[in-house]
């Protein structure tokens, strides 16, 4: 392979994992916009999506087309259930308390997943076989196309939801000005529940499509969440286009770093870039500095 093909190969690999970071980052943003908190259980939704998919396809022998929506639905139920039980009943909780609750939720879900699926990594067959597709000397797995298609679907779906539907607009209204939203009759608490449902669903989609490539184990979510969080911050917390752009960027950098420098430093490279950008642009790539000043963190 010539140098160009090798680079292209690294980019393809990076785009696949970067799409996952992007989706996790989108999930962070949805909950952040609605509640002002970072949901540290976001990575667990990704892990659960993959794990449910493994069980549904290998134990229950369901075809991918049926198992996929069921797995996502199950995770959405977990997300909504988590919000209903742990967050909904609180009256005027502080941001710090909410964040600690999500950390506790993350630990709890991780523990339960360990009981349910064991400690070893779980394998999921690729959805459309493993015959690589050749593009300019580099190869791309059909599964990567699944990942990209999911990211595209999620982005288009979210754009439609937030700009065209009444509920989506109501969620934006409540993110922008909760008091005014309540005055027109929007129940902020309902919107918070909905935001957990939505972001757990997106996390689950990411988990389902990435599991065949990276395998899934009970503590895999944490690292994915960290990178997804990096994507959300790098893109500018709250900005959806920012999260997508930054997610892909982190994924590609990580993959190039692993290829050209050393795979030992792959996580470090991505995080150093993250820190570097934040030194220059504290608001993130697509966030504005003025908005940043008003944020709680």
């Amino acid at each position: 392979m010539d140098a160009l093909a090798i680079t292209l190969q690294y980019v393809f690999t990076g785009v696949a994992i970067g799409s996952i970071y992007a989706m996790v980052g989108l999930g962070f943003n949805i909950i952040y916009n609605c509640t002002g908190i970072i949901n540290f259980a976001q990575g667990e939704f990704v892990m659960l999506g993959g794990m449910f998919m493994v069980t549904l396809t290998t134990v229950w022998k369901l075809p991918v087309g049926i198992a996929f929506p069921i797995a996502v639905l199950l995770v959405v139920l977990v997300g909504i259930g988590f919000e209903r039980i742990a967050i909904h009943p609180l009256k005027n909780p502080s941001v710090l308390v909410l964040i600690m609750i999500t950390i506790a939720g993350s630990i709890l879900i991780k523990g339960l997943a360990m009981f349910a699926w064991g400690k070893e990594a779980r394998y999921l067959p690729h959805f459309s076989g493993e015959t690589p597709i050749n593009i300019m000397g580099a190869t791309i797995l059909p599964q990567t196309l699944w990942v990209l298609a999911s990211l595209l679907t999620v982005v288009v779906g979210l754009a439609y939801f937030f700009n065209r539907t009444l509920i989506g607009k109501a969620m934006r209204a409540c993110a922008h000005n909760p008091d005014a939203a309540r005055l027109v009759g929007i129940s902020v608490k309902q919107m918070v529940t909905l935001s957990f449902g939505l972001s757990s669903g997106i996390g689950a989609i990411a988990g389902v499509v990435i599991t065949p490539i990276i395998l899934m184990d009970y503590q895999r979510g944490a690292m994915l969440a960290l990178k997804g969080f990096g994507a959300a911050i790098l893109g500018g917390l709250g900005s959806a286009p920012g999260a997508v752009l930054a997610g892909l960027l982190i994924g590609i950098l990580e993959s190039l770093g692993a290829g050209y420098i050393s795979s030992h430093y792959k996580d470090a490279i991505a995080l150093i870039v993250l820190l570097g950008v934040l030194f220059v642009r504290p608001g993130g790539l697509l966030g504005s500095a003025d908005v940043q000043r008003l944020k709680k963190f």
Partner: peptide, 27 residues
């Protein structure tokens, strides 16, 4: 219906979106 002090509009949304949300309870 309260028209609050300082208007409290949904600033990043269009005029029509604001009005549509005003009718939220009737949708």
């Amino acid at each position: 219906a309260l028209v609050p002090e300082g208007r409290q509009l949904f600033a990043p949304m269009t005029v029509v979106d604001n009005l549509e949300l005003g009718a939220y309870v009737r949708h």
